[in-house]
């Protein structure tokens, strides 16, 4: 089975390093990025399943980054991490394609649970895609045959 690869995006360096350590100890594969631009660059280079993205960052903010990620890598799951206890920023994120949101300060177990949930969803999605593709693949010789009969 494929192993979940996560990416943490936040402007707080210490938060990134500590959380990375924690998640690694729990056995997850984690990379970090300190800005939206870094995150996008890293997504180009390596496969990442779940992104945990802070809403409020200097430069490119969370919502912007989210939209860009979703545009370039639609299958990537994004969980928004918001400092606002308000539903609005979360709603904004969900509308822009985030799969879930967490409120700061979030418990690590919650982060893990949400990430796994998202990863599952992604896996199911990939499964469906694969299935659809294989069906089409299986269907096509018959269709070719049909076409040949019709011509004959």
């Amino acid at each position: 089975m494929e192993k979940m690869k996560m990416m943490l995006v936040d402007d707080e360096e210490r938060f990134l390093s500590t959380t990375e350590k924690l998640l690694s100890k729990k056995g997850f594969s984690v990379v970090t990025a300190q800005s939206g631009a870094d995150a996008l660059e890293m997504l180009e280079r390596s496969l990442i399943h779940v992104v945990i993205l802070d809403v409020k960052m200097p430069g490119m903010d969370g919502i912007e980054t989210l939209r860009e990620i979703k545009r370039r890598h639609p299958l990537t799951e994004v969980i928004m991490l918001t400092g606002h206890a308000t539903v609005e920023s979360a709603v904004d994120g969900l509308k822009s394609g985030a799969s879930d949101y967490l409120m700061k300060p979030a418990d690590l177990d919650d982060v893990v649970a949400k990430a796994e949930e998202a990863f599952d969803r992604r896996r199911r999605l990939e499964e469906k895609i694969r299935l659809a593709q294989s069906k089409r693949f299986m269907k096509s010789p018959r269709e070719i045959l049909k076409g040949a009969e019709g011509e004959a």
Binding site: E12, R14, F15, T18, T19, K21, L22, K25, K56, G83, H84, A85, K104, P105, A106, D107, L108
Partner: peptide, 25 residues
Amino acid sequence: FAHEINNPLQIVRSEQALIEMNLSD
């Protein structure tokens, strides 16, 4: 003010979790 406080709180929480984990290890 509360918004700004949340970020350090998040870090403290992570650190606390890390200490706990290291302690168990």
